[in-house]
Design a protein around this nucleic acid. Structure first.
Lengths: 115, 115
DNA sequence: CCCATAGTTCGGGATTTCGGAACTAAGGAG
DNA sequence: CTCCTTAGTTCCGAAATCCCGAACTATGGG
């Protein structure tokens, strides 16, 4: 099993971050990891909202987030633990992630008018 | 010739913006339109940095930017004039575009160490 | 009318994404 | 150890996207 590649923070590219977060599922996963500090991968996230995401897709979503530099994954036994790199990324690109996550939060608010 | 569709600002989606700007060429085009206030399309932008972008590709880049709500295009005779919708978008999603454009600016700075 | 310029559309090859099925790794239970 | 179960990964073919040359359309002269 491969050793899980993580880019150094100075190699993180805005284009890769935007691409990773341009997918709503990935953005939701990242939001959750960031909010909860640490989240086990696939099974724990399988039901994000309504959509059931097959685990092969989840696996590649995590890979995209990881290789974009947004999360850090460690293997613990059979499962993955994912941590958000939000602080590192914010330090390098101030305002980027907050702007993006706020935008998603706003648009979710808009389309579900608080019940 | 189709009448150029522009989404209303309240229909603009973060995912579409991120997707549009996750392409470095489009991000550069958008940066330029925003910086210069108004830019004629394809031919005027054909040589962005080094890469020569064929005009069919440019045409679709402009379309992506337009449909994401980032620019507004008007036909004037045979050419297009493009205006940035940065203010509208910033009003709806505060910090989103500034975060993104700063991030690209920073990463460009990093990889070309000021000569 | 004819030509030139500015963009768009079309077509199809290249690349990326999606997701089911088969596979591998780690942790028990017996 | 063997068998099972759980957690993720890999593989691979179908579907969706992207890319860009070539052909086309629209506008403005001369």
């Amino acid at each position: 099993m491969r050793p899980l590649f993580h880019p150094a923070i100075e190699d993180v590219q805005p284009a890769a971050i935007l691409h990773a977060l341009s997918d709503p599922s990935r953005a939701a996963i990242f939001a959750r990891i960031t909010r909860e500090g640490c989240v086990e991968a696939c099974s724990a996230v399988a039901a994000l909202g309504d959509r059931v995401i097959p685990k092969s897709s989840l696996s590649s979503h995590f890979k995209v987030l990881r290789e974009a530099g947004l999360i850090r994954s460690e293997r613990h036994g059979t499962e993955l633990r994912n941590h958000s790199r939000v602080l590192e990324v914010e330090a390098r690109f101030p305002g980027l992630l907050t702007g993006i996550m706020n935008a998603y939060a706003r648009s979710h608010r808009d389309e579900s008018p608080s019940a």
